[in-house]
């Protein structure tokens, strides 16, 4: 079981309840804007603490409300690609990519950079990147942190058609070759159908 998530969270007026039991591949979290999809990703990443429930990823328990277990964000090793790139503005692309790099190597750096087609951007500052470039760098930064699982929040939003196709192909490649559990949020049915091994509606 790659994602075994069952949690509830009250955020103001709204109550988020989410249950995911997913096997290998890419699990799409599908639903309209404002349904709390991003909140679910934040809870899996450990940025938001659920009120109750549990989060288990690839057999490891990251949160268990009953047992009082809450693994700190930095130790969960989530490769989180946020809806906005969130690149560090004071670091060049290269330093951004290597920020989460661990001594024990995961993916090969050069291969990953080539895969993402960002080799020509390494010495640039984040503010000089286009939306699609920044998105690819953000994906690269997450991948190179040697993550145990990937969280993708609307990775295709605000991209033009050509870039969407590029990133979609990339996600398919990640899904099929890396064997990492992936949890992806989208509100686009076509995207969900094409990329998802399974779809969870919220």
């Amino acid at each position: 079981m790659s994602f075994d998530v069952d949690l509830t969270k009250r955020l103001g007026e709204a109550e988020i309840a989410c249950r995911i039991e997913a096997g290998e591949g890419l699990t799409v979290l599908f639903g309209p804007s404002g349904a709390g999809k991003t909140s679910v990703l934040n809870m899996v990443a450990g940025l938001v603490e659920p009120d109750a429930g549990h989060v288990r990823v690839a057999g490891e328990t990251l949160f268990d409300g009953g047992a009082g277990l809450d693994v700190p964000v930095a130790e969960r090793r989530a490769g989180y690609v946020f809806q906005e790139p969130r690149l560090f503005p004071h670091l060049r692309v290269r330093s951004n990519l290597l920020y989460g790099r661990r001594a024990d190597d995961g993916l090969d750096v050069d291969e990953t950079i080539a895969l993402l087609g960002i080799a020509h951007l390494l010495d640039r500052w984040p503010r000089t990147l286009s939306g699609g470039e920044a998105r690819r760098v953000a994906i690269g930064r997450a991948l190179l942190s040697d993550p145990r699982f990937l969280l993708l929040d609307e990775p295709l939003s605000s991209l033009d058609r050509a870039r969407r196709e590029e990133i979609m192909t990339l996600i398919e490649r990640l899904r099929d070759t890396m064997k990492l559990p992936i949890l992806m949020v989208t509100h686009d049915r076509e995207e969900a159908a094409r990329l998802g091994t399974r779809i969870v509606e919220i």
Binding site: A45, A74, G79, R86, R102, S145
Partner: peptide, 13 residues
Amino acid sequence: RRLEQAAATLGAG
């Protein structure tokens, strides 16, 4: 703060 969150998910204490 979102940049700090991003750093945390990348393994920074």
